[in-house]
Amino acid sequence: MNLTLHVWRQAGSADAGRFETYKADGVDEHMSFLEMLDMVNEGLIKDGRMPIAFDHDCREGICGMCGFMINGEPHGPLPSTTVCQLHMRNYKDGDELWIEPWRARAFPVIQDLVVNRGAFDRIVASGGYITARTGSAPDAHAVLVPKAAADLAMDAAECIACGACVAACPNASAMLFTSAKVMHLGALPQGQPERYTRVVEMVATHDTELFGHCTNHGACQTACPKDITVD
């Protein structure tokens, strides 16, 4: 199939950026979306132009490195799917795609589709952990965890920190990401002692990192590739 791509190109943070249009011809339906971009990039490099920069690593939907908007949807149209796991059979010949980076003040663009998500790490650093010195723990069975609590914690812990929730949110809020970590640790007995300070400090960092506030729009959970919910 042949596609038309409008891709956001921005050489660096100082550059204003603009859309450029590329033809992606001979796209195989078995390609992943990133493999389709690889193909376009091979062509660009051969022409001596800079390839489209995008973040990726595992290409299995688990590292959280990939992610950009396709026609206004984070990670593209499939639910519960990162863009690295999106395959071209979901598109048809002649489709026109607009590809943009996550847009949020807290995620400045580094180049093209690559943004800086360091704010996520700083949110975690401000309380998203359990203080437990290596070697000080009692036997793993010393604290029992009800299965329901373990499952709840796991549901929340599946977050891959991709940033799609922020990208989708009309307020560019990172509340889904933040609350997923709060939920994960708060559901476990081990997480209880730091429960209150954790929330307060993580939310404070969330705010100082200039994410917007959550007004319960719910666009984040629709975009989330890991089915993290606002509930």
Partner: peptide
Amino acid sequence: HCVANGVP
């Protein structure tokens, strides 16, 4: 240790 640091 991993149980203590919250691995679900």
